[in-house]
Amino acid sequence: MEGCVSTIGRKYKEDLDQQVKDPFLGDYLKIVQSKAYRRLAFKTQVLSLPDNPHVRTRLIHTGEVMAISIMIADALGLNKNLCMAIAAGHDIGHTPYGHLGERVLSECRGSPFCHNINGVVLAQHVERRGQGLNLTYETLEGILKHNRETTIPDFGKDEPREHAAVTYADKIAFTFSDLNDAVRYGYIDGGNLPGCAIELGATQTIREHNTLNALVAESREKGAVSFSEGSVFANFDELYTVLLEKFYLKIDFSIQEMILRKLYRNISEISDIDPSFLVSMLTDKEANRFGELMSNCSKPSVKDINHCGLFEILPYLTDKKIDYSDPDLGWKPR
């Protein structure tokens, strides 16, 4: 199976291309040194700001997606550096409080807020003091297209296969790790796991191993990255339904939802920049702090909030005309 051999290009040339010969390795290095990547350490995967250090944050999840995507790429002969770059950047556009934030901001703005689009906007127009990271087209497109909600994603025949590898790595990573954390916090009884989880394996490591083996075998047979058939897939798909019913929908995020709505309303009154975009850049910790201040007074003082990372970035956005709902990939080299 052939992977992506080279890039069709970046938006503009730069000196880093001379220092790091592999363009996708260059992308990876840029992303992991970005502010957006650092913020993931304090953003929700499923549970907000967990006390237990072994529970996943958005950054830990990102590392697990990188690891699994590299295993898929290694087994199928794909470009490991491109997989690593896409995986590193796939969630940099996430809001505080995870998918709850995405839903609430969509309701507040009256149109969908999508973390995958937001991630591409951040990478192109916000990082490096508004100059952008100047990533390759393949990495940006992979970040944009990683979020395919369907059980069996559809990949274009001309798309790099690495896009599919990261999409499946994301699904595998969050499914098994979320099960692990659901047991850790008592949402699911570890001594009485659902049958589909038991069928996949006795431990998280074995479940992951068996699922990857099934994906690799099916992909080799079809000549494209695929995971949509057989008993392993059926059990994997059923496990997501179990997590939805017993974990994701059982968490009480009512306080966080109230904080997000207040934040959106307050920011929209003081800034001309899309408030959903500004709220999205906050960490859970910062959003909680704003929530505390808003409960005590209607307008927090500058002294109370000037340590927030958002105020480090705002000066570089004030005069820029950015459509925060547009990934802006029309510059694709021909």
Rank of each mutant, 00 (worst) to 15 (best):
I172V: 14
G119C: 11
Y137P: 02
A88Q: 10
G98N: 14
M71P: 00
T139S: 13
H146Y: 07
R103F: 14
N147C: 07
G130P: 04
I198Q: 14
F176V: 11
V166Y: 07
M66I: 15
K171S: 11
L78Q: 04
L140H: 02
N180I: 00
K157V: 13
V126F: 07
A164F: 04
L144N: 03
G195C: 06
L200Y: 03
D181W: 07
D91I: 08
G110W: 05
T203H: 07
S111G: 05
E149Y: 13
G132Q: 06
P96T: 08
G77P: 08
G201C: 12
V120S: 05
A164H: 09
D178Q: 12
S69Q: 06
G119Q: 08
H115Q: 12
E138M: 10
L133I: 09
E159V: 01
C196L: 02
G201Q: 03
E127Y: 10
L105M: 14
V121D: 02
A67C: 00
T136M: 09
Q124Y: 04
D158R: 12
D154Y: 07
E138Q: 09
L200F: 05
S111A: 14
K171Q: 08
G110Y: 05
T136D: 06
P96A: 10
G142C: 04
A73V: 06
P112V: 14
